[in-house]
């Protein structure tokens, strides 16, 4: 199970990095989103599945660790805000430059 999780996270990270290196700004943003989700999975793998009983509930069995779940939840909420802002900036770029090719959005280079 651990190996499977590690492989899944690794594959997602790889796909994300590949997408991120594309010239198209929309694709590279999607790559960023995929990497971010891979890291969320990694946080989840740090211990969310180790127990069988929920924390703060009077049940028998090993308690699961509530902290990784809290971390992932916070990270998801923050990245949702972050990605909506990135998408808004992308919209701004596409209305200003009428392109999604990062090589053509290069006013600052000169």
């Amino acid at each position: 199970m651990d190996l499977l999780k590690a492989l899944a996270i690794g594959a997602m990270f790889g796909v994300g990095v590949f997408q991120m290196l594309r010239r198209n700004v929309i694709r590279s943003t999607i790559g960023l989103i995929i990497i971010s989700n891979a890291v969320n999975l990694f946080l989840l793998a740090t211990g969310a599945y180790q127990g069988v009983a929920a924390a703060y509930v009077n049940e028998a069995g090993q308690r699961s660790d509530a902290l990784p779940q809290a971390l992932v939840l916070t990270a998801i909420v923050i990245s949702m805000a972050g990605f909506s802002l990135v998408l808004a900036l992308l919209y701004m770029l596409s209305t200003r430059y009428h392109t999604s090719d990062s090589d053509e959005i290069a006013e600052l280079k000169n």
Binding site: L32, I35, S36, G82, V86, L89, M92
Partner: peptide, 14 residues
């Protein structure tokens, strides 16, 4: 400004 903000935000998220 939009281009600069996009660059910065993308790098910062990463």
């Amino acid at each position: 400004g939009a281009e600069a903000a996009y660059k910065y935000f993308f790098i910062s998220l990463f």
